[in-house]
Nucleic acid binder design. Sequence first.
RNA 1: CGGGAUAUGGCCCAGUUUGGUAGGGCGCUUGGUUCGGGACCAAGAGGUCGCGGGUUCAAAUCCCGCUAUCCCGACCA
Length: 565
Amino acid sequence: MYLSKLFLPIIREEPKDAETISHKLMIKAGLIRQISSGIYTFLPLGFKILKKVENVIREEMNNIGAQELFMPALLPREPWDETGRWDLYGDELFKLKDRRERDFCLGPTHEEIITMIVKNTIKSYKNLPLLLYQIQTKYRDEIRPRFGIIRSREFLMKDLYSFDESWESLDETYKKIFEAYKKIFDRFDLKYYIVEADSGAIGGKISHEFVAESEIGECEFVICPNCGYAANIEAAKCKEIEENILDDGELTLIHTPDMKKVEEVKNFLNVNEDRLLKSILYIADDEPILVLVRGDDEVNEIKLKNYLKAKNLRLADENEIEKYTEAPLGFAGPIGFKGKIIGDLRIKYLKNGVCGANKKDYHYKGVSFERDLKVDEITDLRKVKDKDLCPKCGEKMNMKIGIELGHTFQLGTKYSESMSAFFQDSNGELKPFIMGCYGIGLGRIIAATIEQNNDTKGIIWTKSLRPYDVIIIPVSVDDEIYKKGEELYNKIKSFGYDVVFEDRDISPGEKFKDADLIGIPYKLILGKTFINEGLIEVKRRRDDKVFKMKEEEIINFLKGELNES
RNA sequence: CGGGAUAUGGCCCAGUUUGGUAGGGCGCUUGGUUCGGGACCAAGAGGUCGCGGGUUCAAAUCCCGCUAUCCCGACCA
C-alpha cells in the first residue's frame, strides 16, 4: 500500500469530545469517526483491525466445532413476547414499526431467534451438543453511551449459543468454550481477569466475565490477591466480618426532627455511620420487606433478589413507606415493624446503635441487635466494598474496574421452556434444550488493546492486531533513495509481509509522527545512514530501538522479530 | 432521568460581558524554496455562527423555545 493512496484521515488536534486514551487515539489515528452518540464508522484502517479481531475469534470458534451462521438484526416482535423480553428489556430495546404498523426491534442479542431456528430443526438428542455462532451488529439503546466504542449503541458482537441434552453435557460444553475464550484473549496479548458474574434468579448456575485490565471501564469487581477469587460487584460474596462494637446501651426514643438520611442522623447525634442501621423497604413480588444493613453499607439488590427468589424487586415508593411503616420516608426501622425483616450479616454485631422508630421525626438510640431486634432472616446482602474479606480465604480483597470483553453464561432452560423448544432423548421423552450463551465485544478488544498499549506518540499494536508489519520511510526526496524504498517495498511484500510505502511529499518529522501514531511496529528508514554507510535503519516502535543492517539481512530480521513478538 | 458544560469553514479554538463589515492556528489548492522527529515564503478556496422564533435601524452577541454532543451520577442478560 502506498500511503498517499490510503484513506487515512489523521488529526493533529486532540478531539474535543473524547476523554479516554483509546477513544482519542482511535479518532486521531483515523480508525473511527463518530456519526451520532454511540454510533461509529470504522474507517479503512480501523476496519482492517476489526477484521483481524474477527478472524482470530472465528478461528477459535471453528476450532471447538462451533458453526457460523448469520441472523438478521431486524427482528419481529412475536418471539420476544414469548419470552416476555419485549417488555422486560425495556427502553434499551430499539423498537420500530413497519409500514403495516407491525412491531419490530433491532436485535440486542439473539437467544429468541436462535431458539426459534433450532427448535424447528433439531428434534433428536443425536444432534446434540450443537454450537452455533455469528459475528453481527447488535443494537442497544444505552442510557449513556460512553468511552467511544467501549459503550456504544451499535456494535459488533460475536454471539455463540450452545444446545445440550443435559446439565452434565452443558458443563463440558461450557468448559470447552471457556478454554477457547482464554485462548482468544491470550492471542490478543490482553491482560485480563476472569470474574464470577451473577447468573440471575432463573436458569443458569454459572456465569463468567472476561474483563480487561484498564484504568477506565464500567465493570466493577473485587479480586482477592491471596487466592485469586474474583467476582463482579453484583455477584461478589464476602466473608462475615466479626467485630465487636461497644457495650449495650439503653434503648431510648429520641427526637430527630427532619433527620432522614444517614448523613444527617450521623451528624445530628455525632456517631459514626457504622453505628447506624439503615432500614430500606423493598417490594418483592407485592410483599413488603424491610431490609437492614449497616449505615456505611449498601444493599446489593441482586443478592437480595436472588435470596428472595423474587421475580420482581423494587424500592417501595413514598406512599408504600407510609402505609407499611406508619412514618414518612427516612424514619423506617425494625422495631415495631409488622412485615418481614431480613438483615445483612454485619448487623449482628450492632450494639448501642441508632435506627428509625417508624414515627415521624423520631429514632431509637442504644439499639442492640440481639436484645432489641426481631429479624426473620440474616444473610449476606451488602454490596461488597474495597478491603472486604474474601469468601474463600478470608484475606482482604481489592476493588477494581475494567472493560468487560466477554461474558459466558449457562442459561439452562430459560429460553427453551418459554419457547417450547424440545428434543427427544434416548428414551423418546421430550426434553427442553439446556442452553448456554457466550458473547465477545469486538470493538472493545480494540479499545482495550489501545488502553493497555500506548505511549505519548500513539498506539503500539500487539502482534495479532497490527494493521501493517512494516512501513518504509524514505527520509529525503532524493530520487535514488525513493527508488530504493520502492524496490525494498516490493521485495518485502513479495515475502508475504504487509508493508506500507511512505510516498507522501511531506517533511520527515511528519512521516515519523504518523507512523508512530498509527503504531506500525517497524519503520525501515532510508536516509543519511543509507547514503553514508549503505545501511538501512530499522526502528522498533515498541522501544524505539534502532537496528542498522544491510539490505539482505532485513528479511531474516523481520522473520525473527515479527514471528516472536 | 437529575447535575454540569459545549455548539462559530474539514479539525482545534478566539470573538458573546458592552449588538455595528466573521477572525486565528492547523488542514486543503497553486507556485517556489526546504528535506533525519509535526519546515518556510507568497497567492488562494472554503462559514445558513446548531435549529426555530422574538427584540432592534442592525443579532454569532440580548430574550424565549427546541435540538445535538460531551462529562458526572442514576440505570444496564
